[in-house]
Amino acid sequence: MTTATITETGGPTDVAREADADAPTGRTTLLTDTVTVFVRELRPMLRDPFSVIFSMIQPLFFLALFAPLLPKADDGGSALQWFVPGIVVMSCLFGTSMTGSNLLFEIQTGSHERMLVTPLRRPALLLGRALKEIAPTFVQALIIVVICVPFSFDLHVGGVLVGLLILSLLCVGLGALSYALALASAQQTWLFWAVQQTLLFPLLLLAGVLLPLDDAPGWLKALSAANPLSYVVDAERRLFAGEVLAADTLWGLLAAGAVAALGLVVGTRAMSRAS
């Protein structure tokens, strides 16, 4: 399949955003713009809460059909204690990596264009969307935890809360990257799915979500060490076991923070360039 790549010749750029004190309808700021986009993105989920379940169908299958195959932990505890934090990260990865397809659809139908003609600040178009990713991620984590509690899964509320904080950074970053990918794929939709599907499982397996990498060969361990998700999964396992004050927590926080920073920089740049 060949696709025409169209580049524009010339064209001056918007050098600086001028202050528009006498805007005819009202003043906005980057914060109000971000809230506007955030609320708009959140509404369909509030109107139709079941939509949150669809993007976590696969993680739920892994929980139901894969977790029972795991051997008991060394100390005789439930394998769920080890497995569930990874599934929470997996659910976050699945949901947020797909979220760019919503933007892709809006680019194709025209509603993104409609918003580009409004005075919304371009970074807000990304920030609001990326921040919204926190909501389904939290709901999904909650569902997973609630499902597992009856099956000898020890709930440590403090640890889980810190775990959610780290997770929120991760999903903002991954969501922003997914939106950036959508903007890059605007003229060839297949590219979005090709990249998303190609990256999804390597990231998942290298983070040791399904099986531990303790006995992995050196090269696999090296790849795993380069995967920021590995640190997040390790941190989540500690936190879900109630160990908040551990070095792993800090590493997880740093890794998730790095993903968030990268995603927001790449995403806001892509959004500003795309309009």
Binding site: D48, T109, G110, S111
Partner: peptide
């Protein structure tokens, strides 16, 4: 601006989109 495509998001409700649109322009 009313473009060639559909300005309202397919997963949104009509009124919700109108409310968002006003907020985009800084209306109360």
């Amino acid at each position: 601006y009313i473009g060639q495509g559909n300005g309202a998001g397919q997963s949104q409700r009509g009124r919700d989109e109108l409310l968002s649109q006003g907020r985009c322009y800084g209306m109360s």
